[in-house]
């Protein structure tokens, strides 16, 4: 392995229904079709050196997923970005590629900004639920995991949580259905708090129960800015390195 490249990609539209395993298979095949000289691990069953950082759950769209590819021959990041994007199915879109420099990418992913669209929810009801949630010291929720039902606090990891009515007025949407948009910045902690845990929290503290499944998108993830509290570009440190 002579070089590591860090890739930001999006998971959009229908492809939000891919699981993490689906994506890793699709990527390995796309890399092969694109002729990218990916490095392989040694041993009896060699694996391509592609590692993933904090994948969004199945059913959740994302504008900010990250992975790292090790290659056996030096690659131009811009070229790799174009080749990999062309080889991936539409909906898995490569947004940014940089050569990796010092430091671990996973360590820089301190938190995520999520957008949650709730159809058929009353904006005032959503606003008061958000207020109640933020006012609570802790909000214990339960989630069914592979190890059974697990209880944990969903409040502490939530750095910001705001509510807005459908502001962009998406063209072609049914105008009658009101859409409430939640935005939240959630720190990556253990156990991980996900947007659906926050929604569960809103239901517990204020009885907010959306009539249809929420549309969730990860907008950004990265190091949390000390002033704004929002995630910054995690590849910035590598880009700075490029100029040295």
């Amino acid at each position: 392995m002579v070089q590591r490249l860090r890739v930001r990609y999006a998971k959009r539209g229908r492809l939000r229904f891919t699981s993490h395993r689906d994506i890793s298979r699709a990527l390995e095949r796309a890399v092969r079709r694109a002729g990218i000289p990916v490095a392989y691990s040694a041993g009896f069953s060699p694996h391509p050196k592609i590692s993933y950082a904090g994948a969004a759950p199945t059913g959740v769209a994302s504008e900010a997923e990250y992975l790292e590819i090790g290659v056996s021959r030096a690659c131009d990041p811009l070229r790799l970005r174009a080749d990999l994007d062309a080889s991936l199915p539409p909906g898995l879109d490569v947004l940014d590629v940089v050569e990796a420099h010092a430091g671990s990418l996973a360590d820089r992913l301190e938190g995520s900004m999520w957008e949650v669209r709730l159809t058929g929810v009353d904006p005032a009801e959503a606003a008061s639920a958000v207020t109640a949630f933020l006012a609570a010291a802790r909000v214990d929720v339960e989630r069914l995991t592979k190890k059974g039902l697990r209880a944990f606090d969903a409040r502490q990891a939530v750095q910001t949580l705001t509510v807005a009515e459908n502001a962009d007025g998406t063209a072609g949407q049914e105008p009658i259905q009101s859409c409430v948009i939640l935005r939240m910045v959630v720190r990556h902690e253990t156990p991980a708090v996900r947007p659906d845990d926050v929604l569960m929290g809103l239901r517990l503290v204020a009885g907010l129960a959306p009539p249809s499944p929420p549309a969730v998108t990860r907008l950004a993830q990265g190091p949390l800015d000390a002033i704004t509290g929002e995630p910054a570009d995690p590849l910035e440190a590598d880009r700075v390195g490029d100029h040295l």
Partner: peptide
């Protein structure tokens, strides 16, 4: 698809129903 899509978050392995294979 617009009528199917809202059902997909409620089922196992929804990706099998969306098509778009290479």
């Amino acid at each position: 698809f617009p009528r199917l899509e809202p059902l997909l978050p409620k089922v196992q392995k929804p990706i099998q129903y969306v098509g778009g294979e290479l």
